[in-house]
Amino acid sequence: MELPLSATELHRDHDLMTLLLKVAEGDQSAFTTLYEATSKAVFGLVLRILNDRATAEEVLLDVFTQAWRQAGNYDRGRGTPIAWLMTIARSRAIDRLRSGKHDQQKDTLEHAGELTAQTPSPEDHTVIAERQKMVRQAIESLSPEQKEVIELAYYSGLSHTEIATKLGHPLGTVKTRTRLAMIKMREMLSPIFSR
């Protein structure tokens, strides 16, 4: 099953790319606009990984400082600006998580849909909200076992051997579940990728 992608999304990506180009030239006004357009999604991800608001705020600052410094290195061929920011955010948050001291949130990807329903945000009608909906639908299409391994790999940064140990499953089972889950999501999210 494929999910629809609106033309608004493509325009939005284009706008963010334009902003990022200006940021690379040292335009602080463009940087502020970029921050205002993306910080909620990025903060949501960082908070989800760290489950500690104070630490998440520090990491959010680090993420956007890095974005400011490295905007000139952004390669549009490698993904959308928001995907680029999310990648930096996940990497920073997982690094902080591995440095210890932070317990993660207990809810899993399974509850992603419930969370949205409980906490509607002003972004409900924005492009980010559209993509959130598509990704959550893709996740909902996974089996609980598949969601579990993706959750531990993506949000906890565990290796497949660590996941196998944590769940008490054979390594081969973890690999198979990961592969099938990723293939399923790849199919479901293909409209986002066909830029």
Partner: peptide, 12 residues
């Protein structure tokens, strides 16, 4: 890259 969208947006 898309999985980042699964987390709910939170206003910083």
């Amino acid at each position: 890259e898309a999985l980042g969208y699964a987390a709910s947006s939170v206003e910083p």
